[in-house]
Design a protein around this nucleic acid. Structure first.
Lengths: 331, 331
DNA sequence: AAGAAATATTTAATCGATTAAACAAAATAT
DNA sequence: ATATTTTGTTTAATCGATTAAATATTTCTT
């Protein structure tokens, strides 16, 4: 801008007015044209850094996901970016890879870069950031994972209780009698809700002669999963099993292949989340589909002041159980 | 900073010196402590925007990938982020979803935000950005995709010719006689190299009685793939097939399941890239593994002035062909 | 022709930091 | 007691934009 101003012998302010289309009625059309032409010729791009500093508005939203290499989050990121764009915002994102230290670090970077709002999938162990964010009054919304121990935190997620309830109900309605679910050893509330939905439903409406079990992966998924699956089938004689996260499913399904188990004849399977990868499996899989687009849209809308009625609430979306052959009794 | 300064009755400059640890030998240890303590208490975080404006250095690198929901890029992004972090840089990234308009848009955003360097996987149709970037003299490096029509562009990618040559050689060494490959209708150089590697190797060293074919997906992968696979098997009687991108593989493998083809008995298969999803397939797949970490590391290193000998060169990494049962003659 | 109104442009403060240079006060040297 | 260092702190310009308010110029009124 300075260069344009000196080359044309006008003030920087005038250049600014012209290039921003302000005070159009006052500015000489000739001068304006000369400024625009030179800007074009010099390939002028405004320095957004300076702009943001002045406006204290960056038109940027920050997204931190727990793990971008998890397709659930990479798809979520895609929807959020799209939605942000249509609202005139840009999205910058980071991935914490489930590490609280990294989460905090990225959070500080994004706050330092003055994002206008944050969408966060908080990893376990980084909860303490939540009251801090409230304190510094930066607009934010939690997504996917909720933390009921804190008050008045706008949160958008799935009704995880209902989702797993629907899985247990589905198994039972298909006449399966020996149900199992595999979850992670974690305090993350949304995963506990999945467990609760399954366990409570199973205990409440278990028909005569039926059993259910709940297996927990303690630490190292890939090392433990084989034994869990083998035990489930051989010792517990399960005829239906549900994997509570896509990571578990991605680890367990190859084991099912390896153990030469037929789905659904030897065991019925239901997974969480929607994955292209599931299509490579020998049998079309039943899975819980989360309404990613609706969630993304609502989150962005809230942050851009569109939907302030959400403030402080926990929004729980319903999932669809997409039923495929993997959990259907063979006719 | 201003608040700290007024509350303690000192100048903003002093606060700046203290918090940045500059002029340590001159500053009264007492004053320094009071400043640090108050900063701590007020939870002061520097405004990076202002910092960047002053320094014209943002310690941020930009990454634009062709499609973040493609696991090849999401893994690449992960490595690049890690590498950038260890160099003291932050990474902000965007995804163009193969759309040149979007690419250009994100590019402008990142440039406007004054990133210190760019790592780019350029989608087809956005090539014109490359000379522009040269002209404005922003440091950048192309990754994965190369554009030989431009001079002196630092590019890091795979030796795609060699990679597909190794696939064809492998098929032939296994005694397969009817080879096929499936690629995309595109002008992207790296994909043409894959084709060339396969076709030239096949034509050069085709044993008596052997044939090869090269199929092209014109437009809509998911609609066309079924016919391509069916034709390959039924009409062309191929006994070995190679999918030139992971997207093609992800679309083709379900078709192989659907057509009830046995791998490798009915047809041998080789894919590009490494995917967790491949593990769900009934047979362990042979695939081309790209050295993502080495590529990422080199790219970041170059941009942080570590490795300037690369400047203007096209670096081609060798891939590993990870051989699994899917391309082995049954004994 | 003088004043009012409309048009065109500039001045100067500001955003939140950084930093060379100036200044002030205390300690040391002569 | 005065000059010189050393120590401690402030002033003011700067990065690249924005924008209210001031000013200058032209045109219109009567």
């Amino acid at each position: 801008m300075k260069r344009i101003a000196t080359e044309l012998g006008v003030s920087v302010a005038l250049v600014s007015y012209v290039l921003n289309g302000k005070m159009t009625d006052r500015i000489n059309e000739d001068t304006a044209k000369r400024i625009r032409d030179l800007a074009e010729k010099l390939n002028y791009r405004p320095n957004q850094i300076a702009k943001s500093l002045k406006n204290s508005k960056t038109y940027t939203m920050g997204l931190i996901v727990a793990d971008i290499s998890n397709f659930f989050y990479s798809h979520l990121a895609r929807y959020i970016e799209e939605e942000a764009n249509t609202h005139g915002y840009n999205l910058i994102f980071g991935s914490a890879y489930e590490d609280p230290k990294r989460f905090e670090n990225i959070l500080n970077v994004l706050i330092g870069r003055q994002v206008d709002g944050l969408i966060l999938a908080v990893p376990e162990g980084a909860e303490h950031c939540i009251p801090y964010l409230q304190e510094i009054e930066i607009p934010f919304v939690l997504i996917d994972r909720e933390f009921p121990q804190f008050d008045k935190i706008t949160t958008i997620g799935l009704d995880n209780f209902k989702s797993s309830k629907s899985i247990a109900d589905h198994f039972l309605s298909q006449g399966y009698k020996r149900l199992g679910a595999v979850g992670l050893s974690t305090n993350l509330y949304h995963l506990q809700e999945r467990k609760r939905g399954f366990v409570e439903t199973a205990s409440a409406s278990l028909p005569a002669g039926a059993v259910f079990s709940y297996e927990i992966i303690e630490e190292r998924l890939n090392e433990e999963i084989e034994e869990v699956v083998a035990t489930a089938v051989n010792r517990d004689k399960l005829d239906a099993i549900c994997f509570f996260t896509n990571k578990i499913a991605m680890a367990a399904l190859p084991i099912i292949v390896k153990l030469n188990l037929k789905v659904p004849d030897d065991i019925a399977v239901v997974c969480f989340d929607e994955a292209e990868a599931y299509k490579l499996f020998s049998c079309p899989l039943t899975y819980v589909r989360q309404p990613l687009q609706a969630m993304s849209s609502l989150a962005v809308d809230y942050l851009t002041d569109g939907e302030q009625r959400l403030r402080g609430n926990h929004i729980k979306f319903d999932s669809d159980l997409v039923v495929n052959r993997s959990s259907l009794r063979t006719l």
